[in-house]
Simulated scan of single mutants.
Amino acid sequence: MSDMLNVKGLSISFGGLKAVNNFAINIEKGQLYGLIGPNGAGKTTIFNLLTGVYKPDTGTILLDGQNLTGKSTTDINKAGIARTFQNIRLFKDLSVLDNVKAGLHNHHTYSTLEGILRLPRYYKVEKEMDEEAMELLKVFGLDGECDFKASNLPYGKQRKLEIARALATEPKLLLLDEPAAGMNPNETAELMETIRFVRDHFGMTILLIEHDMKLVSGICERLTVLNFGQVLCTGPTQEVLSNPEVIKAYLGE
C-alpha cells in the first residue's frame, strides 16, 4: 500500500528547548495509527506541526505525495488534513446542522454578493450543503438532533459531531486528539465503534493521540511512541505495548 502520510526529520525548538527532535512517521492509506507517549512528550506539538499551527525548523511533511511543509493551516486543511481537539471546539451556539455546514465551506462556495443579495446560486449552494450535512449527521445518528444547539448535546454526541464536522472538509487524513478524554467506559466503547466505522465507511486514514490504552490497543494497527520529543519505538500495536522501554517510559521506573 502507498503512504498517505510521510514525515521525515521533523524538528522544532521553543526558546532553545527541542520540543520535537527528528520525528519520522509513515502511515499507509486506510490505516488506523496511534501516537502515544507520556504527558509532555510532544504529541500535540506534532499535531500542531502537521496542521500548520507551527512551522517546523527542519523536516518534511508529505500528504499523499504532496509537500505541505511550512504551509498555512488553511492550505493544509484544503489539501486534506482535518483534526479534532482534546477540548471539544464546536460552535456551541450554532445548531448541530450549522456546525457540520461550517466544515463544508471548503468545497461549497458562493460570493459575498450572492450571499447578501440572496441570489439563486446562494440558495442552490445552501440547499446542497444542507443535504450533505444531513447525510453526514445520519451516519453518526445525529440527524434527529440537527436543530439542537451544539452545546445541548451530551458529551459523547458532541465528540461525534466534532468528528462529523472534520469529515465535512473531505480530508484524506483525520487527526484525533485524545478523542476519549473525559469519557466514561460506555462512551469510550461507543467511540471505538465510531472510529472504526469512520475508517471503514469513508476509507479514511486516521492518526490519533490517546492516553486510554484500552482504546489504543482495541483499534490501532500500528503505534509510534514519543518520549521527550523523540521517537522511542514504532511497530505493530501489541509488540509496541509489550516493549520494556515503552513500559518504562510510561511507568517511569
Score class of each variant (00 low, 15 high):
K157L: 08
A180N: 02
V240H: 07
M204Q: 12
E162C: 12
K92E: 05
A79T: 12
S2F: 08
K55Q: 06
M134F: 11
L241R: 02
A79F: 09
M204V: 09
V231K: 13
E178Y: 02
D93R: 14
E193L: 08
R159V: 11
G34R: 06
D177Y: 10
T45S: 14
E253M: 15
T45E: 05
N227P: 00
N22C: 04
T51K: 00
E190F: 03
C233W: 02
L153G: 03
D212F: 07
L17A: 13
I206E: 05
S72K: 15
E28M: 14
P171R: 05
L90Y: 07
E135R: 15
E132N: 05
Y155W: 04
E178N: 13
R199P: 03
I76A: 00
K18L: 08
V100D: 00
D200F: 10
K149N: 05
A168T: 11
Q158T: 06
L215Y: 04
S111Y: 04
K248N: 08
D64F: 06
G203P: 03
E190R: 04
G203C: 07
M129P: 02
F148T: 06
E145A: 14
G252R: 12
L137Q: 09
G9V: 07
L161M: 07
K55F: 01
N48A: 04
D177R: 13
R222H: 11
G30K: 07
V216S: 03
S72P: 07
N186C: 07
D3V: 13
I209R: 08
K78P: 06
F148E: 06
N77M: 14
Y110H: 12
L17Q: 09
G80Q: 01
F91W: 09
E145P: 01
A82C: 05
A164I: 06
R165P: 06
F197Y: 14
D130C: 11
R121M: 11
